[in-house]
Amino acid sequence: MASFLRTLIPLDIYGGMKLTGKYFGKVLREANRARIRTHVVCEYPEVPVKLQPRFRGRLTLLKDEQGEIKCICCLACEKICPTQVITIEKGKKEGRKLPYPVRYDFEMERCIFCEFCVESCGFDSIILNHQFELAAYNREDFSIGMEGRFQNMFELSPVARYSVAEEAQR
């Protein structure tokens, strides 16, 4: 008899409906205007995404205070890279004792963002920046070199101008 009544009166369904109804009411009331939000949506791209400090984005070459490239072509990153996306060509430059990278090519389409290169670098000359919008219209634009039409090893891609907050563009 008890089980018959339990089947007849859907209390179990009522519990679920109450929960979903509660959230519906909350979100309906607070959608977009309350400071404490029930909904979990991040309205990208109008609102920039909040990234953690250790976020692994695109590979970037760093320059020191004098505007000199820090890389000294030890090829450690080229060797450790699991997908072999880095190609460095060693060269000499006037007034610089250490070797200077004439070419530093980075095939972004194959990069898996593991940060092994940054880890292997003994001179802190490369870093993964906070850029995650890596789309481009041409395949060639994924081959990033020291100077590039679309993006290069030093600057963010134009696509990233919205989402990466100013202070995170390290």
């Binding site: 109804g21 519906f24 979100v27 979990v40 949506v41 309205e43």
Partner: peptide, 13 residues
């Protein structure tokens, strides 16, 4: 919209 709000989303915006 209703299903979006129930699921803590905003539906389409």
């Amino acid at each position: 919209k209703v299903i979006g709000y129930v699921q803590l989303r905003l539906g389409y915006t």
